[in-house]
Design a protein around this nucleic acid. Structure first.
Lengths: 232, 232
DNA sequence: ACTCTTTCCTTTTTCGAAAATACGAATACT
DNA sequence: AGTATTCGTATTTTCGAAAAAGGAAAGAGT
């Protein structure tokens, strides 16, 4: 692309790396997380190429990578299908994530600098812009919420120096997103609490209160997972 | 298992799934682990296609998946290169792996049945066949040793019911393999101890002594990593 | 002398067709 | 009647060429 006039927030994938390959990967993952393709659904190339308007090869690459991330399973010769979901898996993922996240936030609080703090505030603000909306309007922008929610939690632990700890927690977070989705349809009264919880997490983190932040995060995640568990 | 007559050591990749795609993935990973391509090396398609005798597309898929696993990094438009190695990363990976493995072995000991036990004995025997060899002969079959070593440690924790725990420990194990390789050139006197350690781990596990097995494994891994750390 | 632009060459990225493989139905055989 | 075999269809897997993008060197302009 020669003319760089338009790009700021439009373009593919929102994050730096362009290339339609990276883009289709993101879109496909989003569609799986959003249950556009339910668990166990076979992902046929013929349908997919039309839906995403990319070639077979490009699609195959994306699917292949998604299998590394655990979103799809692949059986040689039989193609790809969306990984199954189960209550026991949700419980396991939740436990792992909480374990990682608690350690990561502790590390981040120790090592975080001014940029880290500033980014948390900024990203939290972006998140609150959607969470403060009335129920219906918020639902309209649900996919944006998912993205900003991810960014918020990521910002909290971004200063964690352990790159693998960060990576592992991100893998688990993405998996949780899949289950989190089922709470989308939950009654608004319960979900509304999240708004305050995020604020509390932010405050505790900026106050460098590792114990409190850690406890709030655990409660926050466990609560969401338990709600998902009932709706499963 | 369907037809168990021939399989034990034949075919590509030793594990079930065939397809040259899966095969090139394994070979490429092995070559990176074995430092055939050192850290930071650019992996050009032109060279790779000749080396592995597969098409660009197939290779790209393998590379792409390897990037999910953390062995290669990819920058859009600039291609793939082997991930760097560092002492701090080794330390982090070691800690994560030990943490996972200790939990996994506990779980395995609780849930493992007769098949699990039998498989441990069988795989350990295969490993000991190489480890019992005199130094030079053993070095000749080093790549086989790597594979059997992996199979042994995997067998120990195979009965762990937490699939993500199993998966996470496997990711870390593969990463460790990369660093473990540098100890290949270590003097024989030190490496010889491993032979006994593996046996002790097996015995403790079969005796269902979780505390002992757990401690032995920690010592075993930490020792190897520390040796690698010095040679780095 | 330095910087910016243009051009060429290398490498990556994408594509869709061709080959290989698995699945299912219909037919033949015991 | 039940089982095995063969054939046809649907899908996946692999391939290499065409398009896009990046990087380096030469040339023009200040």
């Amino acid at each position: 692309m020669t003319s760089g006039t338009l790009n700021p927030t439009s373009g593919p994938s929102s994050r730096s790396e362009a290339s339609s390959s990276r883009d289709v990967l993101t879109r496909l993952r989003t569609d799986i997380v959003s249950s556009v393709f339910g668990p166990e659904t076979r992902l046929k190339f013929a349908d997919m190429t039309k839906r995403y308007d990319v070639s077979i090869g490009t699609l195959r690459e994306a699917l292949s990578q998604l299998s590394s991330e655990g979103f799809v399973t692949v059986e040689a010769g039989k193609g790809f299908k969306v990984s199954p979901v189960s209550a026991v898996e949700l419980i396991e993922i939740t436990d792992h994530f909480i374990s990682f996240e608690k350690r990561a936030v502790r590390e981040a609080i120790v090592h975080g600098g001014e940029d880290w703090e500033a980014n948390i505030v900024a990203v939290h603000h972006r998140l609150s812009l959607i969470e403060g909306l009335p129920w219906e309007r918020r639902m309209e922008r649900h996919s944006e919420w998912v993205e900003r929610h991810r960014e918020f939690h990521e910002a909290i632990v971004a200063a964690c120096p352990g790159r693998w700890l960060f990576r592992l927690r991100s893998i688990m977070f993405d998996q949780l997103d899949r289950y989190r989705f089922v709470t989308k349809r939950a009654p608004e009264g319960l979900g509304g609490r999240k708004f305050e919880e995020h604020r509390e997490i932010m405050m505790a983190t900026l106050a460098r209160d590792a114990d409190l932040a850690s406890a709030l995060i655990e409660q926050h995640i466990r609560d969401t997972s338990e709600r998902a568990l009932k709706l499963l």
